[in-house]
Amino acid sequence: MSAEAMPAATSRADLRGRLQDWLPRLVLSPSVAAMLVFVYGFIAYTIYLSFTGSKMLPSYDWVGFDNYRRLFGLSAWTTALVNLGIFASLYILISVAIGLMLAIFLDQKIRAEGGLRAIYLYPMALSFIVTGTAWKWLLDPGIGIENTMHLWGWESFRFDWIKDRDMAIYTLVIAAVWQSSGFVMAMFLAGLRGIDNEILKAAQIDGASNLSLYRRIVIPMLRPAFLSAFVILAHLAIKSYDLVIALTGGGPGRATELPATFMYSYTFTRNQMGVGAASAVIMLMGVASVIVPYIYAEMRQGDDR
């Protein structure tokens, strides 16, 4: 180590040491730069556009809140918002209900658990376009489930929601629940497996019936899983685009129009970029209202790491 004391060696070591100090930040910087430009810069740009009179191409004439005023005056947008409300609440509710039930049932030392779990989960691996294609056809009264029931002798069976303006939105729920509920099941199952069995044993010794055991002890302990499931499903619902395109194309009429499809068609096919940008901003605000508290909690939790 005495050689270290020589001035030349020391200064070179210092330089290397300083480089080592900066390396981590240097390595992280491309990603951070990309994020700042492509995510936050772009968000800022879109927000800016939403206050301009952009039509087919971006223009930079400031129009204040005109686009937002127009947006909320459009019946197509209010329809899309109402549809999203129906779709998101049913999608989240049913997915959570089915997911929780399947998780609790699968947790009862079922022999074929591994296989069943795989079956419940595989839809998650599919693209919404594939899911939409499959369900579009199953729901088609001419050849799908309705037709099959007729051929099996149940002549009065009716299942033509996909062609029905009032019911089409529910077909979206069916397909989306089919795709996501297995995933929710996996989240709850992981939560259940994290519960200490000694607590369950203690409750049983205390005389709790299975029903009250789950209602009073297990389900309250799954709070984090509920929260995560809600966050994931809510943001998926707001972003939903592919499924609508593949399943109904937004129709019949505007019966299954969602904000995501609205934004796309106003921006790229109807050349109302300002209004499209405004709708995207509203969507972002919707997602942020769900995600930001979650991230805030996550970051605070990170304090003690």
Binding site: M1, E4, A5, A13, D14, G17, Q20
Partner: peptide, 15 residues
């Protein structure tokens, strides 16, 4: 350490 101030010396070079 051993007469050398190590405040700014990297851990691997403190012997």
């Amino acid at each position: 350490i051993n007469g050398r101030v190590v405040n700014d010396v990297h851990p691997s070079r403190r012997n």
